[in-house]
Amino acid sequence: MSHDDVLNPKQMPHDPEKATLEGKNKFLGFWFFLGGETVLFASLFGTYLALNGSTQGENTPENLFGLELVFIMTMLLLTSSLTSVYAMYHMKNHDFGKMQLWLVITVALGLAFLGFEIYEFYHYIHEYDFTFRSSAFGSAFYTLVGFHGGHVLFGLCWITALIIRNQKRGLNLYNAPKYYTASLYWHFIDVVWVFIFTVVYLMGKVG
């Protein structure tokens, strides 16, 4: 395939993200990468579960967490996953404008999520004096949730960079796999959050 066919395809295939060998490789490689990320988060969850009782008699999950805030955050992130699906749907329809629009909405929702998370951490530190260093539970909590937050931040930067970079030239066979993997990443972050919501917050309140 010549470079021109990749950058200015005469006709877009139905799956532009997998139309080139590079695209196929990226697609598969990214799935493997997410497999490794799964082990990463599994290890962090394991550590958290081993240490969430080590509160040293101070701030415990029950008296710290407020489910209202976390519920709003969950809704924001779940919705952002949905909007990124819309974006990919429009990619397959070759409607670049709509794809960009839905990605912008995705980024906005992600930003809101991140804002709430920063507020949450700020709140714990200043109202409860609950920090990374106060107990093993504190270390485990901030590490697990913070790793997820870091992933959200990285994803936001990534998707934003893609939106800006390709704004002028539209969709082609070179950038379609990039968009697609970024959206996969975004779903993955969302799934991890569902587990955090359950294991950290729900079980922390109830269990």
């Binding site: 240490l51 009782g53 260093r133 107990s135 093993a136 504190g138 270390s139 590490t143």
Partner: peptide, 23 residues
């Protein structure tokens, strides 16, 4: 975890703060 304990004062392996070295 080792990095956070040694460089940023976390308590994963610090038994005095409830940490657990077996992790």
């Amino acid at each position: 975890l080792m990095m956070f304990d040694r460089m940023f004062g976390s308590a994963f392996f610090d038994v005095a703060l409830g940490g657990n070295v077996i992790i």
